[in-house]
Every structure is written in structure tokens, then in C-alpha cells.
């Protein structure tokens, strides 16, 4: 189901190849630019053929997924985003680990963890940590909702939707909630012999967050978003 339509492109390659040969300057008139899609990773040009729902168009030479439409993807992504939003807020304030050593108890939330660095020059680190775990994921969720809700409701795109979506894509590598979740587990083992450590509610929220982040990545087809922002209310 996923690997099927890599051949999206061969036809057009030939077509473009021919036209490029005939007259390099005149390429555009042969094939309208709107009908082309260029792999962002390796610059290969393909003729646009939208794959069927559930199939993926993959770049032939670098295997980057170019188009991957999913049924009802918009609604699902909105649902996932709302759930993610709630989880991030919850995960910020509830304790994610608690510790008990000889009657000394302590439990911390993510906000506490980020503020652990708050002495001196480490303050910058505190801000960076908070940003990577909470703020960036939160911004991305909000942007996703802002961009996709009008699209799904067949309304005209929100103002600056394209810029917002572009920013959200640029922020993607800096969203590290799932790495933090694994960090909790490592920390737990590290001090297991020092004290009794237990998972708080926020830990499970982070676990859920990991699942949601992966699910969202699977459902979102960036090309479809760009396309519907470019041609709103197409149907």
C-alpha cells in the first residue's frame, strides 16, 4: 500500500526530457510549471500525478515522500492536534516523576525541570530546554490548527496561513517532546538505586504525546496542504 506508486514520474520524465532537449529556454511553455513537482531534497523534477488515497508518491532517486494523501487526513490531523495541545498543557504542569528517598519526597513537573538550570549562565539553557520540550511543540500545534481548520471547513485560508505553515515546517526539528519522554526513562534508571522513583501523570502524557507526534507525521501530507492553500475551495 505504501510502496506502490513510485512510478508516478517516468512518463513525464520522458516528456520533460524531450522538451528540454528541443529548447531549453522554452521548457515552461511545454509543461506548465504548475504541473511540476520538484523533490526538495535532491532537486529531481517530476510531472505532478496525485496518487490515490493511501498511496504515496516517492522520489525515485532519494526516496523522499513527495505526496501522500490520506482519507479524511484533515479531520484526523485536527483531532490529533487538539489532543496534542491538551497533552502538552497537562504535561507541563503535572509532575512527571516523583522520588522518595528515606522519607524525603519530591515531585517535579516539566516547568520545574526546565528551571533546574536557572542559576547564572545556565539560565539560557533553561529557556532552551523549555522551548524545545514545550514551546516549540505548542507553537507547531497551534499553527497546524490555524492553517488546517479553514481548509477542512472549505473556508478561505487564514491570513498568513502559508507563512505560518512554512514557519511550522522550519520548526519541526526543534520540537523535542518525544526525546524528553525517553529522557525521563533514562533518568529513572539512573537514580533507581538512590531512591524510589515513580512515574507521575505527566510521564504518561508524554508517552501519549510521542504516539500523537508519530501519528501526525504519518497523516500530514505537506504537498496537499500547500495545494489546498493555493487553490482554496477547489471542489
Amino acid at each position: 500500500m505504501t510502496r506502490s506508486c513510485e512510478e508516478l514520474n517516468i512518463k513525464c520524465q520522458k516528456l520533460l526530457y524531450k522538451s528540454a532537449m528541443k529548447d531549453t529556454v522554452d521548457t515552461q511553455t511545454q509543461t506548465p510549471l504548475a504541473d511540476l513537482i520538484v523533490c526538495p531534497q535532491c532537486d529531481a523534477v517530476y510531472h505532478l500525478k496525485i496518487p490515490k488515497m493511501g498511496e504515496r508518491a516517492v522520489c525515485q532517486r532519494c526516496h523522499t515522500v513527495l505526496i501522500a494523501p490520506r482519507h479524511k487526513a484533515g479531520l484526523i490531523i485536527i483531532a490529533i492536534s487538539i489532543a496534542t495541545f491538551i497533552l502538552i498543557i497537562g504535561a507541563a504542569f503535572f509532575p512527571f516523576l516523583d522520588i522518595d528517598a528515606a522519607g524525603n519526597k519530591n515531585s517535579v513537573s516539566v516547568i520545574d525541570a526546565a528551571l533546574a538550570f536557572s542559576s547564572g549562565p545556565l539560565l539560557l539553557l533553561a529557556l532552551a530546554t523549555a522551548a524545545l520540550i514545550l514551546i516549540v511543540p505548542l507553537i507547531r500545534v497551534v499553527i497546524t490548527l490555524y492553517v488546517l481548520v479553514p481548509v477542512v471547513l472549505d473556508l478561505p485560508p487564514a491570513r498568513y496561513a502559508m507563512q505560518a505553515f512554512r514557519a511550522s515546517e522550519a520548526l519541526r526539528p526543534w520540537s523535542m517532546a518525544e526525546i524528553f519522554a525517553l529522557g525521563c526513562a533514562v533518568a529513572l534508571v539512573k537514580i533507581a538505586d538512590l531512591a524510589t522513583v515513580g512515574f507521575g501523570p505527566a510521564f504518561w502524557m508524554f508517552g501519549g504525546l510521542v504516539v500523537l507526534v508519530v501519528a501526525q507525521e504519518n497523516f500530514i501530507c505537506k504537498w496537499s496542504v500547500w495545494n489546498s492553500l493555493e487553490h482554496p475551495k477547489k471542489s
Binding site: F96, L97, I99, N106, S107, V108, D112, A113, A114, L115, A116, F117, T129, G183, C184, A187, K190, I191, L194, A195, V197
Partner: peptide, 8 residues
């Protein structure tokens, strides 16, 4: 490190 420093 952040987790340990805030927890312990």
C-alpha cells in the same frame, strides 16, 4: 541532566 537536577 535537567530531570535529575530538578528531581533530586
Amino acid at each position: 541532566v535537567a530531570i535529575l537536577s530538578s528531581l533530586v
